[in-house]
Structure formats: structure tokens, C-alpha cells
């Protein structure tokens, strides 16, 4: 649910990075944080365990620029990827305007990807959203790892709707901003059409 403020002429949107545990959601946000001008970003908040696994969420506010006199601000959130944090994941999806699904390209994580995608669909449906109608993009992360599945294979399994998708190496930043720009664009296009979610 975006928030349009006519007074301060601002538009705020919420983007959630979703995906299986250790797929690189937090790494995406950290890279964006490190590479963004100080005036365009707020503080990055990570609610993590002592072993640096996301416990509740990471949060990064980002200003992207102006459209027709309206400042566009995006609030980026990650969910905790570990299966047993499902209750927290549901909470973070509330009011979402766009989703980045971060898949782990490693063959060994294929099942975890599929499970997480299914979990995303279920959790969205519980709140009356449909993934098919919600702006979303897919990122195939960890392309630099030794045993990765071909992008075509990942695409056929995880992106049946043909949404924008990107290979990425979040640790070096490859594909990180392409992914963000694509989802931001979809969210704004959806706003222009006057709808959001499903």
C-alpha cells in the first residue's frame, strides 16, 4: 500500500525482498546501502540474530528522485528466510507494493527456492494479494558459485509469468541495481494504472 502525501508531495512505496534462507536478500540491501549517496538514503536497520541471520527484517529507506514534482521514496524490507520464521514473514508482507524474489542459483538450493516461492504465494494469498497481479521481479543470485543451475532452468521453474528477471552476484553488486530499478519501475507503473496488489 503506497502512501501519497499531497502536502509534502511525496510518494512512499514498500518493496519486500523475499527468498530462501541465505539467498542474499540482506546482501542486496547492504550493497544498495553502500553504493547510494548519503542524501538519498536513511539508516539501514537490521534486526538480526547474533550469528547475523535476519531475525525479523532489514529496512532501508531510499529516495529515488522526483516524478512530476512528487518525491519518490522506497522503503526496502527483507524477510527472514529461514523456514521457521514464517509468522514474521507474513507480517512484513503487509502493505507490500512490490516484491523481489531472490533465488539461490545453486543446484542444491533448488528445492528451497521452490518452497520459498510457494510460501510467498500462500502468504500473499492470506492477505488477499495475488502474486500474479503484484509487481514483482526475480533475481537469480550467486551466479559466481561453482555448481549453479542454468538461468533458463531457474526461469522455467520460478518465473512462469515471464516477469523481469536478472542474474546477480549480490556480494559484488552485479545485477543488484538492475533488479531494484526493475521492481521500482513496475511499482510506479502500477500506481499510474491506479491499482496495487490484487
Amino acid at each position: 500500500m503506497s502512501f501519497i502525501n499531497y502536502l509534502s508531495r511525496e510518494i512512499n512505496c514498500k518493496i519486500v525482498y523475499y527468498g530462501p534462507g541465505l539467498c542474499g536478500k540482506t546482501t542486496n540491501l547492504q550493497y544498495i546501502y553502500n553504493k547510494t549517496n548519503p542524501e538519498a538514503k536513511g539508516k539501514m536497520i537490521s534486526l538480526a540474530t547474533e550469528t547475523e541471520r535476519t531475525l525479523f527484517f532489514d529496512f532501508l529507506p531510499l529516495a529515488l528522485g522526483e516524478i512530476r514534482g512528487f518525491k519518490t521514496r522506497f522503503h526496502l524490507y527483507t524477510v527472514p528466510g529461514q523456514v521457521f520464521y514464517d509468522a514474521s514473514r507474513k507480517l512484513i508482507l503487509k502493505g507490500v507494493d512490490g516484491v523481489v524474489f531472490v533465488a539461490d542459483s545453486q543446484i542444491a538450493r533448488m528445492e528451497a527456492n521452490l518452497e520459498s516461492m510457494e510460501n510467498l504465494r500462500t502468504n500473499l494469498a492470506e492477505q488477499g494479494y495475488s502474486l500474479d497481479k503484484l509487481p514483482h521481479v526475480i533475481q537469480y543470485n550467486k551466479r559466481d558459485m561453482p555448481s549453479v543451475a542454468p538461468v533458463e532452468e531457474l526461469r522455467s521453474l520460478l518465473n512462469p509469468n515471464g516477469m523481469p528477471d536478472f542474474g546477480a552476484i549480490a556480494t559484488t553488486g552485479d545485477g543488484v541495481f538492475d533488479t531494484l530499478k526493475a521492481v521500482a519501475k513496475l511499482v510506479l507503473t502500477e500506481l499510474k494504472r491506479g491499482g496495487a496488489g490484487g
Binding site: 501519497i4 510518494i11 528522485g65 516524478i67 512530476r68 519501475k185 510506479l188 499510474k192 491506479g194
Partner: peptide, 16 residues
């Protein structure tokens, strides 16, 4: 009406 109805695809592209 929403102010965004008047936004063009070019406006969005320009942002990026």
C-alpha cells in the same frame, strides 16, 4: 483522481 494517472512511461524511465 490520482496525480499518477498523468504520469507517462517516459517520466518513469527518466527517473532511472
Amino acid at each position: 483522481s490520482t496525480p499518477f494517472a498523468e504520469i507517462t512511461d517516459d517520466d518513469i524511465d527518466n527517473l532511472f
